[in-house]
């Protein structure tokens, strides 16, 4: 199926998502994969945790 992604592919897409807008087919493919995969949602949460951590750090370095 053209929308099937392996965990490895889905992981790469989740990393790419931090820096660029995904094409629509990648967005759907990722959503479908996350819905059926038990492992990848953990990686998604790790990326979210890192994003929040970076934001905290940025504020910490920049503000009095």
């Amino acid at each position: 199926m053209f929308l099937n992604r392996t965990c490895k592919e889905a992981t790469a897409i989740m990393v790419a998502k931090e820096d660029r807008r995904l094409p629509w087919n990648e967005r759907i493919a990722l959503r479908l994969h996350l819905a059926i995969c038990k492992d990848c949602p953990n990686f998604e949460r790790q990326m979210l945790t890192m994003r929040n951590g970076m934001k905290e750090w940025r504020n910490y370095t920049t503000r009095d």
Partner: peptide
């Protein structure tokens, strides 16, 4: 990162706890 030849994780990525929980400690920075 440890993937099988078919692209699955060998071991699930670890649970890091609640992503919304603020990691604002000096140690973390």
């Amino acid at each position: 990162m440890g993937f099988k030849p078919d692209g699955h994780y060998i071991e699930a990525p670890a649970q890091w706890g609640n992503p919304e929980q603020h990691s604002s400690s000096k140690q973390f920075f």
